[in-house]
Simulated scan of single mutants.
Amino acid sequence: MTDRIDSPARVCPNCDGFPAVAVTLGGRTSAGHLRTITVHCPKCHGLGTLATRTTALAGGRA
């Protein structure tokens, strides 16, 4: 009897698995640090992966 194999998660095609990045706003704070904001991928919502497709094609083989 074989073990159940879970399919690997699909990497998001928009961010290639790097869902959150720091973007500089330009300039520096009074302490000398760069001003940055964190931006998340809009497709995967900051997860880096997408859910696997579970729907079958119409007329496909079982």
Rank of each mutant, 00 (worst) to 15 (best):
I5G: 01
A51N: 09
T54D: 12
L50E: 08
M1S: 10
T2I: 11
T52H: 02
G27C: 01
L25N: 11
G48C: 05
P13L: 02
R61Y: 07
A20N: 11
R35H: 03
T24V: 07
L34K: 15
T54L: 09
A62D: 14
T38Y: 03
V39H: 03
T49I: 09
T55N: 14
A20L: 08
T55W: 10
V11H: 00
P13H: 01
G26E: 01
T49N: 14
P42Y: 06
P8S: 15
P8E: 15
G17E: 01
H45F: 12
G46H: 02
G17T: 06
V11D: 01
V11E: 02
V23H: 08
L47M: 07
L50W: 06
T54W: 08
A56F: 09
G59F: 00
C44R: 00
N14L: 13
T24C: 08
L47P: 01
A31F: 08
L50R: 08
R61N: 13
R28Q: 09
L47D: 02
G17A: 04
A62G: 10
C44A: 00
I37V: 14
A62T: 11
I5S: 02
G59L: 04
K43H: 14
H33G: 12
A9M: 09
A9E: 06
A51G: 10
G46P: 03
D16M: 09
I5K: 13
D16S: 10
H45C: 10
R35N: 04
N14R: 15
A58T: 10
R61A: 11
S30I: 09
P19M: 00
N14W: 12
R4P: 05
A31P: 00
R61Q: 13
G46F: 00
T36G: 04
G26L: 01
T49M: 11
R10F: 12
T55P: 01
R35A: 08
T29Y: 02
V23R: 13
T29K: 03
G60Y: 07
G48K: 08
P42C: 03
G59A: 02
K43M: 15
A56E: 14
G26Y: 06
V11N: 03
V21S: 05
C15E: 03
F18N: 15
P19H: 02
T24R: 14
H45K: 14
K43C: 12
A9K: 12
P19V: 04
A51Y: 04
T49L: 12
R61S: 13
T52R: 09
T49Q: 13
V39A: 07
C15D: 00
T24E: 13
T55E: 15
D6I: 05
P19Y: 05
G46N: 02
L34M: 10
R4W: 05
V21Q: 11
T2E: 10
T38N: 10
S30T: 11
H40V: 13
T52Q: 07
P13C: 00
T55S: 13
A31S: 15
V39W: 07
T49A: 15
L34C: 07
A22K: 15
